[in-house]
Every structure is written in structure tokens, then in C-alpha cells.
Design a protein around this nucleic acid. Structure first.
Length: 494
RNA sequence: CGGGGUGUAGCGCAGAUGGAAGCGCGCCGCGUUUGGGACGCGGAAGUCGGCGGUUCAAGUCCGCCCACCCCGACCA
């Protein structure tokens, strides 16, 4: 054990002192950390488990927010804000909810120097305070549905943290809706799952599997939880967004009732759904390479960076003029011009590759002379990704190339996931595959929650979800041997 | 909470047997450079994690505390 740790430290020292990013294959975890820090997405905060989201990381988050918020509004949702503090007793009203969250609550017991009569928890999620308010607001079937979303931060006292993936405080949106019937609530839950999948695939170029969570993995207090699961570059799974049908659990706990058309009191059916800054981790681990981050053009803070090249004042004047002209031509895109004069162009190339900017334009005296630019794609390394392009009609070339990069990233990620998804018939095969290949394992499943626990204990793999894909017909459960048509995806997960 | 480890300049580290705090990178200044991570010269920067003890003398020895990191159990 200590020998292994010594090795770890030696390796870490070497990685930290070198200029190069550790490769994904030699140390994926350290590769990830270094990208977050070097690309200036985030930094460690002076509070344990907390991070500072730096301007470049926040710009990415803002683009994620815009893409999601537009979809929420299009489906009739409105934004609101609920308090950060929640009376501790609220959490205790729903049994499964309090059992799930109590180990990770931050609690405020003193305010203004006085001991509080009732401790306040810093929200780990807002179902309870929403439930309290909804019970005040909802009286009649005419008040339904209520479709509210909130962009906020929450706190969960996690034991082991990792930048973006699991931090004590994180940023997200949480949608909370109330409906007259169970069917409507289920339809809403699935609609929002669809929106997450659409966002992931079409904005972030991240292929996801939509599925139902197992009883062991579902949200504390939910009737059913759905997930979008993505495969990371190290073959592990990451839950990248969730949508919950809460049934009438919170309605009963908080007395959210309405009078129906017959003037009879009915409990509401509620949902909640969230996607967090964890998704930035998804983007990093799905698209990044040994050069650093690769951002999907639709979400990248800068879609294109221009690096001017010159040797003297005379050249600088000429190049400056050309860059200004090109920048104006490309005003429909998010463009950054790197005018720094204290670093060399070569440094800038590496720097912007680390930061994942999808396209780069190099513009020097030779290009001014020939009325061209050098256009370089981030997603294809080497000379195949470099093009000499005329300055005339540059905007349309850039537009096409950004679309092409977006599509290429998605297709590449789909192929990667498919190449690393395996089917097995027996538990022996399962363990063998997990050990030597990893990735997603697709199986017929008829086991119980206890079976799932045993498998997890032995292999560290869990059921990521039961995919919502059309049924594939009967087969034998790889674990129990029973005949079933239920499909499960197992993987080691973050 | 269990097991392991580390605290010395912004970052990464070196400082046998106690005897004047160092190296690399970064940072600041000047000059030369600039089409794939430039170079030279000069410079600033540290209550050695904290408290206590031993000693003429502690970064170094002893005790207690604190923080952080890694591996497990929990999780968006």
C-alpha cells in the first residue's frame, strides 16, 4: 500500500513539474485536473471541497444555461428564485428524502450572534421548500400545472470532491412542476429528459443514453428517476442530468392539494429535474484529447481565435489592419484576437488548444501578401486539420467548418461509445469484460436490488440505467438466468 | 470515519550526522526574439503549517494540534 502511494507521489511530482499535460492514457484523473486548472475553467477555493468557477468556465456555463433556458421557456416553464435557507424540519417531512440527504447537510445554527430557534439547512435541493410554497399557491385544478425552474447553487457536504464532478457547492438548475394527474407528471418527467438529451447531443455533441434509474440509484424521495448517461474518455459512466417523477410523495408530505372539477380534494403529482455544472466535466471528459480541452462550437466561449504574426512594427501595422478586417468579416461568430506581445505565436497555439477553442486563424505577413489565412481545426491534429483559405468568403468557410466540427465531435463520441459497449451472457463473462475491456455492459436483467448490491460489491459496477430504447425481445438474465425482456446497462461510474 | 501520505518563495521541490534558507518554473525590469511551448542580463519574493518542549543554537530532535492530498464507504 505504501509502496503504491510512493509511486503515486513520484508520478504526480513529475507531472506537475513538466510543461506537458499528462496523457489521458497514463493518468486520466490528473489529465482532467490539469485541464480544468490550465484552461482556467476553475480553481480550488480556500474552503474544502469548493471551487471558484473562473471567467472562462463561467462563460461556458452561461452558454449551457442559454441553450437549456431557451428549451425550458419553449415548453412553458418560467424562472423564479427560492431561498437558500430551508427550515430543518422541512427536510424531515419526507422519509426517504431526509434519509438520503441528512448525511450531507450543512446546517446553520447561529444567526446574528444568537442561537436559532430552529436550525436552517443550506439547500441541498429545493423540493421541500417548493412543496411548502406550492401547497399555499395551489388550490384549484385551474392553478395547474405549475411549471417553475430555478437557476441557483446548492450545498451537499460531499466526502470526496473533484472539480466540477462533485464539489461541496455546485451550480445548476432545478425545475419543479406540479400536475393534476400522475400521467401528466410522467409526461413532464419524460419531456424534460428528452430536452436534456436534445441539449446534450445537439449543443454539447455528447451522445447520451436515456434511461430509468434502478431503485438503488434513484433520487431520495422519487417514485422514479430518469437519467441521461454518457461515457467518458476513460470508459466510465457519468450521470449528466436527471429527471424525477416524484409521484405524490412530496404532495402528501407537504399537503399540496387541489379541488378537482367535482370539488373533491386531490393530491398533486410533482416532478423535479436538474442539470449541473457537472456537465462541464462531461464535456471535458468526452471530447478532450492529449492537447487539452476540445469545446463543441455551439457552446464554446470563443468559437475562433485569431493569432496575428509579425516580426517588426512595419509588419505589425500591416497585419493589424488585416486582422481588423477579418475580425469584422467574422462578427457573427464569437471571435477572440490574441494580441499579446509577450508570448510567441507557438505558445499561443498551444495555449488556445489547451483551452479548446474549435478553430484558429493564423494571420501573418505571408497571408496578407497572398490574401489568405491559415485555418486550423482543433478536432483534427496534424496537417489534415490545417487549411490555407482565401480571405474572400471566409465567413461561409468558417460557418461550414464549425458545423462540421460539431458533427464530427458527436460522431466520434458515438463511435467511441459503441466500440466500448459490450454484451455478455454470463456473470463470468461480465467480470472478465469489465476487468479487461471496461465501458458499458448491456445485459438482460432480472435481478433484485440485493443482487445489484452484490455485483457492485464484487465488481464496483452499478446499473447506470434501464434504457428507454425500444424493446429487443426476450433473453436470459446474465446473473439469475431468468427469462426477461428488461435490458440494463452496467458500468463503473463517477 | 478507517488506512496511507505531505506541509520550506505564487507553483513543483532540495535542504546526512542540529551551526548564516536554496534550486527549477513562474513573476518584475531592460534588450534581442516572434509561422508550433524563445533567449540573455539584472531583480523582488519565505514569521520553514501552528503551539509547546530539549539545546548555547531547531527547517532539522521530541510532544500535541491544524490543514491538505491519495485509497475505501456516500453522491447531480
Amino acid at each position: 500500500m505504501s509502496g503504491r502511494n510512493t509511486l503515486y507521489w513520484r508520478r504526480k511530482k513529475r507531472l506537475m513539474s513538466s510543461d506537458r499535460l499528462p496523457s489521458r492514457s497514463e493518468n486520466f484523473a490528473e489529465w482532467y485536473n490539469q485541464i480544468v486548472l490550465r484552461a482556467e475553467l476553475a480553481d480550488y477555493a480556500p474552503v474544502r471541497g469548493c471551487m471558484v468557477v473562473r471567467p472562462y468556465g463561467w462563460a461556458l456555463w452561461e452558454n449551457i444555461q442559454k441553450a437549456l433556458d431557451r428549451r425550458f421557456k419553449e415548453t412553458g416553464h418560467v424562472n423564479a428564485a427560492f431561498p437558500l435557507f430551508i427550515p430543518k424540519s422541512f427536510l424531515e417531512k419526507e422519509k426517504a428524502h431526509v434519509e438520503g440527504f441528512s448525511p450531507e447537510l450543512a446546517v446553520v445554527t447561529i444567526g446574528g450572534g444568537e442561537e436559532l430557534e430552529e436550525p436552517l439547512v443550506v439547500r441541498p435541493t429545493s423540493e421541500t421548500i417548493i412543496g411548502h410554497m406550492y401547497s399555499k399557491w395551489i388550490k384549484s385544478h385551474r392553478d395547474l400545472p405549475v411549471l417553475i425552474n430555478m437557476w441557483n447553487n446548492v450545498v451537499r457536504w460531499e466526502l470526496r470532491t473533484k472539480l466540477f464532478l462533485r464539489t461541496t457547492e455546485f451550480y445548476w438548475q432545478e425545475g419543479h412542476t406540479a400536475h393534476a394527474t400522475h400521467e401528466e407528471a410522467e409526461a413532464e418527467t419524460l419531456q424534460m429528459l428528452d430536452i436534456y438529451a436534445d441539449f446534450a447531443e445537439n449543443e454539447a455533441a455528447v451522445p447520451v443514453i436515456q434511461g430509468l434509474k434502478s431503485e438503488r440509484e434513484k433520487f431520495a424521495g422519487a417514485l422514479r428517476s430518469y437519467t441521461i448517461e454518457a461515457m467518458m474518455g476513460d470508459l466510465r459512466a457519468l450521470q449528466s442530468g436527471t429527471s424525477h417523477n416524484l409521484g405524490d410523495n412530496f404532495s402528501r408530505a407537504f399537503n399540496i392539494r387541489y379541488s378537482d372539477q367535482n370539488n373533491e380534494l386531490q393530491y398533486c403529482w410533482t416532478t423535479s429535474w436538474g442539470l449541473s455544472t457537472r456537465f462541464i466535466g462531461t464535456i471535458i471528459m468526452v471530447h478532450g484529447d492529449d492537447q487539452g480541452l476540445i469545446l463543441p462550437p455551439r457552446l464554446a466561449p470563443y468559437q475562433l481565435v485569431i493569432v496575428p504574426i509579425f516580426r517588426n512594427e512595419e509588419q505589425k501595422t500591416v497585419v493589424f489592419e488585416a486582422v481588423k478586417r477579418i475580425e469584422a468579416q467574422l462578427s457573427e461568430f464569437r471571435v477572440k484576437v490574441d494580441w499579446r506581445e509577450d508570448v510567441t505565436p507557438g505558445f499561443k497555439f498551444n495555449d488556445w488548444e489547451m483551452r479548446g477553442v474549435p478553430l484558429r486563424i493564423e494571420l501573418g505577413p505571408r497571408d496578407v501578401e497572398s490574401q489568405q489565412v491559415v485555418l486550423v481545426r482543433r478536432d483534427i491534429s496534424g496537417s489534415e486539420g490545417k487549411f490555407q483559405v482565401s480571405q474572400d468568403g471566409l465567413a461561409s468557410v468558417v460557418e461550414k467548418m464549425l458545423i462540421d466540427i460539431q458533427n464530427h465531435l458527436f460522431k466520434r463520441a458515438v463511435r467511441f461509445r459503441e466500440e466500448n459497449t459490450h454484451r455478455v451472457e454470463t456473470y463470468e463473462d461480465f467480470k472478465e469484460t469489465l476487468e479487461h475491456k471496461g465501458g458499458f455492459i448491456r445485459v438482460h436483467w432480472a435481478g433484485t436490488s440485493e443482487d445489484e448490491d452484490l455485483i457492485k460489491e464484487e465488481t464496483r459496477a452499478t446499473i447506470r440505467c434501464f434504457p428507454l430504447d425500444p424493446p429487443e425481445g426476450h433473453g436470459c438474465c446474465f446473473y439469475t438466468g431468468e427469462e426477461t425482456d428488461r435490458i440494463a446497462i452496467f458500468a463503473r461510474a463517477y
